[in-house]
Structure formats: structure tokens, C-alpha cells
């Protein structure tokens, strides 16, 4: 199944989802198509004015452009999500996930889709990490 991960660029979540046999809906793939496109209008990420306008599907015109631009990239991933894993308090999330307002809105958009969601905290010690991995595995297995 297609699993939306939050943060959408997390190495740990991407790896675990793939390891346990599902397809992570990753930001990296969404950006890949843009940055390797033949027409680079707005380097480095090639998020163009038109993309920011497409972001209006997810957030109104009164919302800052950075939020709409980010949602233009990962909003379509949310639209495909069949399940999701949110990892709260992930450290040092810059760039695509650097705007906390966008991150909160993205989670709301996923919740509105009424798909199964697993919420976790970023592990800070071994016990928490064990619990996290086991819960991710159980959650993903439960989806099959």
C-alpha cells in the first residue's frame, strides 16, 4: 500500500516502510520529477509560480506562498495516501519540512482522508526506538 510519511523526507520512516513491504510516498520522489525535468524554470527545486497557484487546492490565497508551494509538492502525495505514519518532534527538519504550519496542515489533510494513521514520537532512547519499530511493523502488517 501507499504510505504517506511525516516528515515526508525521513530516512528512518522511508526505510522501515519499504523494509516492511510497502511503498513510502516520499517527497524525494515528488521532487525528483521536478528537478530532473527538461524545463527548469525556477531552480533549485523548480517550484514555479504556477505550482504555488496549484497549492490553492490545499490552502487559500491568504495563506503564505511558502505553505502553498510546499503543499503543491506533497499535497498530491497526500491525495494518494492509503495509510500514514506521523512521527512527531522529528529533529532538524529544514527545507521542505521547515515550515511547521505546513506540517500541521498536511497532517490535517491526511486525517480528513480517513485512512489508517499511526502516530509516533521520534525516539530518544533504545526503549522508545524498540517500541517505535515494533509498532510500525504491526501497523504495516495490519494493513495487508
Amino acid at each position: 500500500m501507499k504510505i504517506f510519511i511525516m516528515p515526508p523526507n525521513s530516512l528512518i520512516l522511508f526505510d522501515l516502510v519499504e523494509r516492511f513491504g510497502h511503498e513510502p510516498l516520499s517527497l524525494m520522489k515528488a521532487l525528483r520529477d521536478r528537478v530532473t525535468s527538461n524545463e527548469i524554470e525556477a531552480p533549485p527545486l523548480n517550484v514555479t509560480v504556477d505550482d504555488v497557484k496549484l497549492g490553492l487546492k490545499y490552502a487559500g490565497i491568504e495563506i503564505p506562498s511558502g505553505i502553498r508551494g510546499r503543499l503543491a509538492i506533497y499535497g498530491p502525495l497526500i491525495d494518494q495516501a492509503e495509510a500514514a505514519i506521523f512521527m512527531e518532534d522529528a529533529p532538524y527538519s529544514f527545507g521542505c519540512v521547515g515550515c511547521q504550519r505546513t506540517n500541521e496542515l498536511a497532517k490535517l489533510l491526511v486525517r480528513k482522508r480517513k485512512v489508517p494513521i499511526l502516530s509516533l514520537d521520534y525516539p530518544s532512547n533504545e526503549d522508545e526506538a524498540k517500541d517505535m519499530v515494533v509498532r510500525v511493523k504491526e501497523f504495516l502488517e495490519g494493513l495487508k
Binding site: 525556477a42 531552480p43 527545486l45 514555479t48 505550482d51 504555488v52 511558502g66 527545507g95 515550515c99
Partner: peptide, 12 residues
């Protein structure tokens, strides 16, 4: 800055 790359203005 914050948001320039996602607003399509970094190149500008």
C-alpha cells in the same frame, strides 16, 4: 530566509 525555494522566488 524561509520559504523562498517553495514560493518559486529563490531563482529571482
Amino acid at each position: 530566509s524561509c520559504g523562498t525555494e517553495y514560493s518559486g522566488v529563490q531563482a529571482e
